[in-house]
Design a protein around this nucleic acid. Structure first.
Length: 536
RNA sequence: GUCCAUAUAGCUCAGUUGGAUAGAGUGUUUCCCUCCGAAGGAAAAGGUCAUGAGUUCGAAUCUCAUUAUGGACACCA
């Protein structure tokens, strides 16, 4: 419908020798229904260029538009063109939804472009906690949305299984192992103190006895155990990955050495104080960075550059990294390094997630892995419920820092918005269960006319646009807002209009309509990893 | 000090290519179960869109300054 109006306006303008690409004409849906079904501010925008009164321009556009689908056009306010359109297309859309089912709302704005999205990528040195849950939720929802919008999405997890922190993990496990075996602990001060480390130590004791274990074995067993945990937790959170990239394998394939040599060869490095530095200031970073420390070991940055070079070489049209807010300073140096190996840093988008604070009532719970008291993703789901947790994270724009109050989320679970949406879903399921008669095909809907029904149908019609917008803006919370509003419109419709009645045609049409509503609710919720219940 | 993000109703938040009277939920105050699930519906009240200037037909939205909050500024990751 929007496209049609754009075309009509564009043609009307052409008659006045104003050439405007129809895509540039903004058509929006007014908040007030008295302002029409669609409106355009094109006349006001043209005043700048053509120095005419906007109402005059609007009037001449109006005179030059005629279409069987348009009931009337009004000129309002400073020069808005308000279109009142025939509602048939909304009713026809019911059958389209019923036909397309779980594909309703799909779009091809992605044009099958290859897009890689890397998220979570938590170090395998502990258990996934709250902050990871937000990242997992965002990355997964975004992947689903982009995929639904027609992109060819690859979900990737980068495992930091080499370097300093893994050495630290090894020492931590050994420290706990000594404890478990009844000897004095050698757990380092800055080691990992989570209780999962003790579990690993106990497993090792069972498997290898008390007389010491080879360090390499300790490291590998620890990694396997922790990574297994992470995969399992993500799986339970309805989050999956296509590619698991390993830092260790980046080393093993020689990519790190290669990148280092290339950087040196191309003059992007220098030595100072015994360390090797990279000139990221050339590309706008605030200072140069160390890539090889004075003790000869690499910083995290070097293998990460190699990893990103590898990702670039795999031929994606777009790369997305999802970072926590605490990593934002990392952007400039990473992008600088990408420019150094001759790739376009603009191809990489970095989405920054603001922090989540966990509180229980008034007491803040620190999320540090080292204290061992972090609330894990599992505990969160156990307390709040999977659907509510996913919904809660997806509901908030990633730009806002949130307090996740466990007390509130659990105690007031009845007031949680996810229940409101699920309730709409369950109501429809319940009616469809009660409806015993055969469903008859409908060619033309005749009994559905109320404004409650029309508003609901208009919202259902909008779904595809919402998906496109959410994909473009990388904003899953737009889906949440949408589905909530859809639920509101359904509840309102439900309260005002009986669905099951003696009148066969009347009932049949409404059964089709609510079944279509059910599909849209499900499709929207699927995009944020929520599966609505059929019964409350 | 520098960089990033945020500041909207008592509280939690939407408001996304600048548009018409700034919206939900929650809380407060009222109605509505003879009826497909009241975990619902209808309504009232609640606003200096942090502050100040600028840009223009028009600003919560864009620009600049100021203030406040969170985060980052390692030869950690």
């Amino acid at each position: 419908m929007k496209e049609l109006l754009q075309k009509l306006i564009s043609e009307a303008l052409k008659k006045q020798e104003i050439i405007k690409d129809s895509k540039e004409i903004i058509i929006e849906i007014p908040k007030e229904s008295s302002n029409g079904d669609y409106s355009s501010n094109i006349a006001m925008q043209l005043t700048k260029e053509y120095h005419k009164n906007p109402r005059e321009i609007a009037e001449s556009i109006k005179q030059n538009i005629s279409s069987s689908q348009i009931e009337k056009i009004e000129i309002a306010g400073p020069g808005f063109l308000n279109f009142f359109v025939k509602k048939d297309y909304l009713l026809e859309n019911i059958n389209i939804i019923l036909k397309e089912k779980e594909n309703y709302g799909r779009s091809n704005i992605g044009e099958n472009k290859k897009i890689n999205i890397e998220f979570v990528s938590a170090n395998p040195t502990g258990i996934l906690h709250l902050g990871h849950a937000r990242g997992a939720s965002y990355g997964d929802s975004l992947s689903r949305i982009l995929s639904f919008a027609g992109y060819d999405v690859t979900r990737e997890y980068y495992i930091n299984d080499a370097g300093n922190q893994i050495h630290n993990l090894e020492l931590s496990i050994l420290g706990r192992y000594e404890e478990v075996c009844g000897r004095p602990s050698t757990l380092p001060e800055d080691g990992y103190h989570g209780k999962e480390i003790i579990e690993i130590a106990e497993k090792l004791k069972k498997e290898y006895g008390e007389n010491g274990i080879d360090n390499e074995v300790v490291k590998q067993k620890g990694l396997d155990y922790l990574l297994g945990n992470i995969k399992n937790d993500l799986d339970n959170f309805r989050v999956s990955f296509d590619v698991w990239s390993s830092e260790k394998s980046i080393y093993e394939r020689g990519l790190v050495e290669q990148v280092k040599n290339d950087l040196i060869k191309n003059g992007y490095t220098y030595e100072s104080d015994g360390a090797l530095w990279i000139k990221t200031t050339l590309f706008g970073d605030e200072k140069d960075r160390v890539i090889v420390k004075a003790d000869g070991t690499n910083t995290y940055l070097l293998p990460d550059i190699a990893y990103h070079k590898d990702k670039y070489s795999r031929g994606y049209d777009k790369l997305i990294d999802v970072f926590g807010a605490d990593h934002h300073g990392y952007m400039a140096r990473l992008k600088g390094a990408i420019a150094m190996f001759g790739e376009d840093p603009e191809k990489l988008d970095i989405e920054i997630l603001q922090m989540v604070r966990l509180v229980r009532g008034k007491e803040e719970i620190k999320m540090s892995k080292r204290t061992g008291n972090a609330v894990t993703i599992n505990e969160l789901v156990e307390e709040v419920g999977l659907n509510a947790t996913r919904y809660f994270f997806a509901a908030r724009s990633i730009d806002t820092q949130m307090d996740f109050d466990l007390e509130l989320a659990t105690k007031q679970s009845n007031d949680n918005p996810v229940y409101y949406v699920e309730y709409a879903h369950a109501r429809i399921c319940s009616i469809l269960c009660d409806y015993k008669a055969e469903k008859e095909e409908i060619e033309k809907y005749e009994t559905i006319t109320s404004s409650y029904a029309m508003e609901l149908l208009a919202s259902m019609y909008e779904f595809g646009n919402i998906v496109e917008m959410a994909a473009k803006k990388r904003a899953p919370h737009m889906i949440v807002n949408y589905v909530y509003e859809l639920a509101t419109l359904f509840h309102s419709f439900y309260a005002h209009e009986k669905i099951l009645s003696e009148d066969i045609q009347y009932t049949n049409e409404r059964i089709h309509m609510i079944e279509a509503t059910l599909i849209v609710i499900r499709n929207a919720l699927a995009l944020i990893g929520v599966e609505a219940r059929n019964k409350m």
